[in-house]
Design a protein around this nucleic acid. Structure first.
Length: 350
RNA sequence: CACCGAUCUCCUCUU
């Protein structure tokens, strides 16, 4: 049975969900009974693949088969529902499970705290931290990072100081992730100077900036119009051996398109392709949107044609915008091509 | 002290 678990887990890690499921289904033929661990792996894979309905069915099957969910199950499902934005469901699941005697551990508590932070229920999140302490579980660095991120997203930077002190008093020092959260908080307040100080502080404390650090700073710099400094930072990260990723490029491309600097954005698309960085739906969405709004409809339509040929899709709103612009300019034939593409992809025109 | 789970950045979703 352990062998099956390891095979299923390996398939999962390799992104081979089909094979993982097939292996799971094969267990019965070998008279192997899936254990709680087996179900946990499958549940995790289904949630990762955003197959929430299938995950729920699997959980029901798990309970029906008499397999007792453990604290990891609690974490996986709470986290999976949270990631799907089903915050209320996650909370309800957690309370119903604990009511049925499933004991949460530190990680499960942290998953629920993260859920409440994402749902903007900071009061509950902080209460849960006290509750987990009361149950004998010390909040971890993860726990504190979740709470800090919650405060930062709500632009309540002033309250991060006390929490940081509390975190340090438990023996956990801030890590790169902690600093990234704070950096992002300052950037969201457009306080680039504080963000820069935070960056200096993290380096001084021996925390190495990673790709997220740079991406956060670049977004912050762009948001206050310091695109020159942002490009300097891109050079710096490359010098340190950190290659810009799709998020770095998307940040620049989106900003440049918003400023109707289409040629520069287009050049960056070229650069990312050259470097083997795969563009995402966001990349093309920013470009087509920017082209339409800059009155460069021919190019927007041209990019649409390229995507159609390559079978690459982007967001519904982009097709709608492009179609509306084409109709507005009397390009009815081209507009109908967009319509056809949307219909083929089962997108809803508005 | 076997095999499973949690936190940060573009976009998405919210606003």
């Amino acid at each position: 049975d352990v062998t099956f678990n390891m095979v299923i887990l390996s398939y999962g890690r390799a992104g081979m969900l089909q094979e993982a499921r097939a292996t799971f289904d094969q267990m019965a033929f070998f008279k192997c009974v899936p254990s709680t661990f087996t179900y946990n792996i499958i549940l995790h894979l289904l949630f990762e693949a955003e197959r929430v309905a299938a995950a729920r069915q699997t959980f029901d099957a798990m309970v029906r088969s008499g397999c007792r969910p453990n604290s990891a199950t609690l974490s996986i499902v709470t986290h999976g529902l949270c990631k799907a934005g089903l915050y209320t469901d996650a909370t309800l699941f957690f309370s119903s499970m604990t009511a049925e005697g499933c004991r949460p551990d530190a990680i499960a508590y942290t998953c629920l705290i993260n859920n409440q932070c994402k749902a903007r229920n900071l009061i509950e999140a902080f209460q849960l931290k006290e509750q987990m302490l009361h149950q004998g579980f010390q909040p971890s660095r993860y726990t504190y990072n979740c709470l800090l991120a919650g405060l930062c997203k709500m632009r309540r930077m002033s309250q991060t100081g006390n929490l940081l002190l509390e975190m340090v008093s438990t023996g956990d020092s801030p890590d790169t992730c902690t600093y990234n959260i704070l950096l992002d908080g300052f950037c969201r307040l457009h306080n680039v100077n504080a963000a820069k100080q935070c960056l200096q502080a993290m380096i001084k404390k021996g925390c190495l900036p990673n790709i997220v650090t740079y991406n956060t700073m670049i977004a912050g710099l762009c948001s206050v119009g310091q695109v020159g400094s942002a490009f300097e930072l891109k050079t710096t990260m490359q010098e340190k051996g950190i290659a810009p990723d799709v998020i770095t490029y998307n940040t620049f491309i989106r900003y440049l398109c918003k400023k109707q600097s289409i040629d520069n954005a287009w050049a960056l698309l070229g650069e990312m392709l050259d470097k083997g960085c795969k563009p995402s739906m966001t990349t093309f969405s920013s470009l087509i949107d920017g082209m339409c709004k800059a009155g460069r409809l021919r190019e927007a339509y041209g990019l649409f044609c390229i995507l159609r040929t390559k079978g690459i899709r982007t967001y519904t709103s982009v097709y709608n915008l492009l179609m509306a612009e084409l109709f507005y300019m009397g390009e009815n034939r081209k507009a109908l091509e967009v319509w056809d593409e949307m219909s083929m992809r089962n997108y809803q025109p508005d």
